[in-house]
């Protein structure tokens, strides 16, 4: 045990050796007792060791959770769908959000200081028109609405339908309230029809806002005065033609996020 003060050069040498051995220690492999003793008394080594143990723990946690070794899936399945780029272009072309995103510091607020050059703006606008056509938007009406929240929801497949079904809802202010546009893909032909609802989870209340067209999408005027803070879930249900107007089987659902 050489715990007595050593020559600086000797201490440095030991420290360098310890740094090399730290991954072994992090994996609980036996190491030279001299190294172990140094690490035990060295604050720098302890910090380093702790971070390596965190990496080890996260790797093991991921493996238990079934997410690790994920490389086995189809490469195509591990890429976003082709429409995502269009959505990004459209969102950027539509301008900054009402409130700066709360995720990254200052995003959005800085937008005005660095407008993209003309070419990009034109390109993005063109892409926006394509997407707007798909989604049934009318971009023209958004001027002057900037004081009110807009939002969107990703709609995930529910147990009542096929797992590959999905959708997207966009809520935006219109001249007389809010407009909601819902687009879906992958839903099978309904046994009956598909209805779109706003759902208030805390009060367990639902309001039907319309039915999806045969093109699996629709644009709806939201009820005037509805509290969008409370009704923050969008639900699509399969309704049978049985005369019962109540909500039947959920097929898609998602939470509206604003900003």
């Amino acid at each position: 045990m050489s715990r007595s003060p050593e020559e600086p050069t000797e201490g440095d040498r030991l420290h360098r050796r310890a740094l090399i051995e730290l991954p072994e220690l992090a994996l609980d492999s036996p190491v030279d007792p001299i190294i172990a003793a140094h690490v035990a008394g060295c604050a720098d080594c302890q910090v380093e060791l702790q971070s390596l143990r965190a990496v080890r723990d996260l790797a093991r946690f991921g493996s238990v959770g079934g997410t690790a070794r994920a490389g086995a899936a189809e490469p195509e399945a591990l890429r976003p769908g082709p429409l995502v780029w269009d959505r990004i272009s459209a969102e950027l072309a539509a301008g900054p959000p009402v409130e700066p995103g709360r995720v990254e510091p200052d995003a959005g607020r800085r937008w005005s200081r660095r407008l993209p050059r003309r070419g990009l703006l034109a390109g993005l606008a063109a892409a926006a028109i394509v997407v707007a056509g798909v989604a049934g938007w009318t971009l023209g009406s958004r001027q002057g609405d900037s004081a009110r929240a807009r939002g969107q929801a990703v709609l995930a497949a529910q147990p009542g339908t096929v797992a590959s079904a999905q959708g997207h809802a966009v809520m935006r202010p219109s001249h007389d309230g809010y407009q909601m546009t819902v687009t879906t893909t992958g839903l099978p032909a309904p046994t009956g029809y598909y209805e779109v609802w706003l759902y208030d989870p805390s009060a367990a209340k639902m309001v039907a806002i319309g039915t999806l067209g045969s093109d699996a999408q629709g644009s709806f005027t939201m009820p005037a005065g509805i509290d969008t803070q409370a009704y923050y879930v969008v639900d699509v249900s399969n309704q049978l033609y049985n005369g019962d107007p109540r909500h039947q089987t959920s097929v898609l659902r998602g939470t509206i996020r604003t900003g």
């Binding site: 969102e91 995103g101 990254e104 200052d106 995930a156 959708g167 997207h168």
Partner: peptide, 26 residues
Amino acid sequence: HSLGNRGDAEDVTQATFVSAWRGRDT
């Protein structure tokens, strides 16, 4: 792999690139 759902993952992808572009000054 975190969310287990393509729709949500595409939404995160969209939000990430939009945020990144708008926040590129940072």
